[in-house]
Design a protein around this nucleic acid. Sequence first.
DNA 1: ATAAACTATAAAGTATACTTGAAGGTCAAG
DNA 2: CTTGACCTTCAAGTATACTTTATAGTTTAT
Lengths: 130, 130
Amino acid sequence: MKIHMLAQKTGLNPPTIRYYEKEGLLDRRHVERRDNNYREYTEEAVEHLLLIKRVQAAGFTIREIKVILKEEDENKLELSQAIEFLRKKMKEMDHRKRELEQSQSLLARMLDNKLALLEKKGTSENKPLP
Amino acid sequence: MKIHMLAQKTGLNPPTIRYYEKEGLLDRRHVERRDNNYREYTEEAVEHLLLIKRVQAAGFTIREIKVILKEEDENKLELSQAIEFLRKKMKEMDHRKRELEQSQSLLARMLDNKLALLEKKGTSENKPLP
DNA sequence: ATAAACTATAAAGTATACTTGAAGGTCAAG
DNA sequence: CTTGACCTTCAAGTATACTTTATAGTTTAT
């Protein structure tokens, strides 16, 4: 499929996809060139980009994603490094999750405070959401 | 206390603290000027900055933090807006948490795969972490 | 009293992750 | 065979969140 189609299927736009390729996030499993120099994408590319979106939303940088998603070259040293990296990242994600939870309860308290304030200021027009 | 002290207590550095002030994240509750034009920080500033760090780690931008942490001006309209904003953000955080969890199980699978690969390639020198 | 350490401002620089713009090649339809 | 919708590359622009640099005033220690 061509870049426009892939863009539609992934919710990204063409320049972003080209940018990801330039940054090394796509390889021969996902894209090749046709005679006219147009990029031709595989179905695998769709999954790959959706995965990138998810991992990125979880707080990874593009360079980090590149490290964890790159095609395994079966090199033992790099494999060990990738494993170490993944372990480290899992810990970081635990940490981030805890921070997220703490911030969430913080926001909940702030929300309560503000709701109480609103109550106090104008009881009549106060309409809490259903 | 002066900026250097606050920096030590919060793990930020002075330029960052000045930057936050410039961006409107600190107000009269946290900082004032002395005769020599030096900033004088309150103890409240320490808590405030630590809170900013936490909320930021949870994925908020500085502008968003500014909105949720700014001193309540007791204006009903802004209050309602802040409440709406907080509700929206809580939902976003739920979403981010789910994505984090999904990414985590994804990474766990990848880790398993890589560990299996490592097994296959060289059983002798393979030392899984304790 | 003078050097070292700390403070101030303003402006420029950096990194990340894109987005936009310019200038041109390709292709399908009328 | 040209128009319009795509495709290409490369360079420059944007937003966020700082960091660094330059220049200068203030305080503290010897």
